[in-house]
């Protein structure tokens, strides 16, 4: 009768519920924690991709997908299409990686070109079906005049800097060249400008951009 009630405290926390049943063969992608940029250096990433380390693709995604998706979606103008193109680009980057030579250029330039080219191919094939080429340019010029969509990072200084630095005529040419996939002569033709003017404006714009980096 003297026994006292044991002091019961529920301090034991069960670990989060664990799925019963057979364990998955590998982790679902969502279990791979996103890794912030500074943890994966470009050299490290290149080395791991060269070693055919598939987990490096996740690092690659976390590091480059926002920029690649930004460029691709700017070119194809629809997020669903951009997502497909980004996926294609990642597969292509993986498959072509043995051909990448770090001595000949930075990884970002290389993957940007692959992504841009796939995206431009996408709109080219679409325009081909539709028929006219001018359609695309008109779209592109219309997009040019539209304010940046909300999904563009408002805190992103880069875009604001560019808007501040380039005059609209310069930005229009750079956008047509970079997001429209046009040659300088095609731009000259479309904008009814002498080819020399287009070249000069493009060069000036690029010079201004490279000054922003320093």
């Amino acid at each position: 009768m003297r026994d006292e009630a044991p002091c019961l405290t529920f301090t034991h926390h069960l670990t989060p519920p664990i799925a019963a049943g057979p364990y998955p063969l590998s982790f679902p992608v969502s279990e791979i924690p996103p890794i912030s940029l500074p943890t994966a250096s470009e050299e490290d990433l290149v080395r791991r991709l060269q070693a055919r380390d598939e987990s490096a693709l996740t690092l690659f995604y976390d590091r480059y997908a926002p920029a690649l998706f930004g460029v691709i979606s700017r070119i194809v103008k629809a997020d669903e299409v951009a997502e497909d193109v980004l996926q294609e680009a990642l597969v292509k980057i993986w498959n072509s990686f043995p051909a990448y030579d770090p001595g000949k250029g930075r990884l970002f330039t290389w993957v940007l070109n692959i992504s841009r080219n796939l995206a431009i191919d996408k709109i080219r094939s679409r325009q081909h079906r539709v028929g006219t080429r001018t359609q695309g340019l008109d779209d592109s010029l219309a997009a040019q005049r539209m304010p940046a969509p909300d999904s563009f990072r408002p805190e992103h200084i880069g875009l604001q800097e560019i808007v501040k630095t380039l005059v609209p005529e310069q930005r229009q040419i750079i956008d047509l060249l970079y997001f429209g996939g046009y040659t300088q002569s095609e731009v000259a033709e479309e904008l009814k400008l002498p080819l020399g003017t287009v070249k000069t404006r493009a060069r000036t714009a690029i010079k201004l951009l490279s000054k922003l980096i320093r």
């Binding site: 690649l68 250029g105 930075r106 940007l112 010079k207 922003l212 980096i213």
Partner: peptide
């Protein structure tokens, strides 16, 4: 020039 285009691309980075 390549660096300038990288900068240009990066400036268009989006929230996924």
């Amino acid at each position: 020039i390549q660096l300038a285009f990288e900068y240009y691309a990066d400036a268009h980075a989006r929230e996924l």
